[in-house]
Design a protein around this nucleic acid. Structure first.
Lengths: 130, 130, 130, 130
DNA sequence: GTGGTCTAGACCACC
DNA sequence: GTGGTCTAGACCACG
């Protein structure tokens, strides 16, 4: 069963973090169509978030068509988000894990690693800021 | 001169984004001790943020000891954050850029890529967050 | 419940005055670990300051590790500042109060008294300031 | 010759600190009627302040009638501020110095000592806040 | 011109 | 209700 993690220092709203983690689980194949999401109560017990926060995350996922709430039963996965199949993510994930090991060995902490990715992502595309 | 980018969709407070970008510039060697940061007013003109937002970012950096504001003169870099030297970051950055190219070619968008990194980073350490 | 006083003539920024008063209350034992600080809105109602001013004071205290803000609940004391226990401050406070009475009887106003302390404090250490 | 000290972390405007120190020197008898204040240039050389800052302090003292600027010659003490004679300040200063030694021996730093005085000063008079 | 502070008011996330 | 963030604009101290 998927377990959520909330990083309170990141500034990112917890409900977005939870929704994000569901999407990622779908992309990775950890969750698949038909699977049941943990109940709000379970999440509240496991993570340190409020019930409303979990509800908001699930409602967002429902609006995107990824999950479906069945009254009295729970919330279930309805579709996978667009994008490559889980196998692709796994393969790329292994390559990335290898790079992460090197970065950590060189002394980079998580913040530095995430910063480096952010810079790398926006490096080639020099237009969209809004 | 460093130029800031604010991603309004990310949910991360703009002042944290700005501070983060200064830290990263220091890690990458784009900024070094003694360098002057763009004045608050220059940042306001270039990016679409309010003066107080920039001030807040600079204040945070000052409390961390990374920069120093000299009244009437500007804000200057005082020290580099702990961690490996710029060269290390550059080398790792090139390897990461190569991986990012593969991921994009495989159909992953930026959100999927960032999610994958987040999962990878927290994979080995399975403790709590609180 | 602690009540804040802001001296607008002193030139000291109100947010620093508020933070100072919390620190002093901690040193004196008026506030202790676990206690709740007045909510930002309560302070705004009682004193004549703006919400952001209070927030700034609380933020500074939070960065020092003295207090902790819990979203939706309030701000709570997390630790006592380093230094002698409250009893020591009380004892010294009584001796100081006695001296203050003498000084006032001799015709010194508060400004003269504070000036005298400042001179006394920096008397033995005659180095620079920077 | 009087030497000025500016505490940049206190938040009190430097020009006020300088004026304050002149007033205190007058109360203590370190400066007396007819004495010459250090020239702006000398102060700028000795302390780390700007000439305009010193000028502003001297102008304030002139408005109060304490000093007098003589064109081409310098700034001279014109009168002593109201209050008890220097001898009284010296006597009280010695008693205060003794108390300060005790406070420091007990582990109080300067910030704690100043805070304690501020609390003591405003303790009996519970009215004037603005 | 520089940075810094304060006010006023709006909006958000969370409980 | 709580704290947190952002904006807008004014004012101050300093160089």
């Amino acid at each position: 069963m998927i377990r959520f993690r909330v990083d309170w220092r990141s500034g990112v709203p917890p409900y977005q973090q939870i929704a994000q983690q569901v999407r990622q689980a779908l992309r990775m194949g950890v969750l698949d169509v038909g699977d049941q999401l943990p109940s709000v109560r379970e999440v509240v017990a496991a993570a340190v978030v409020n019930a409303n926060t979990v509800l908001k995350a699930y409602r967002d996922l429902e609006r995107e068509g990824l999950v479906e709430a069945r009254a009295g039963q729970g919330t279930f996965v309805r579709a996978r988000p667009p994008g490559p199949p889980p196998g692709t993510h796994s393969r790329l994930g292994r390559a990335l894990a290898s790079w992460v090991r090197q970065a950590r060995a060189a002394g980079l902490d998580d913040e530095a690693i995430e910063s480096l990715l952010r810079v790398t992502l926006q490096a080639p595309a020099e237009e969209d800021i809004a």
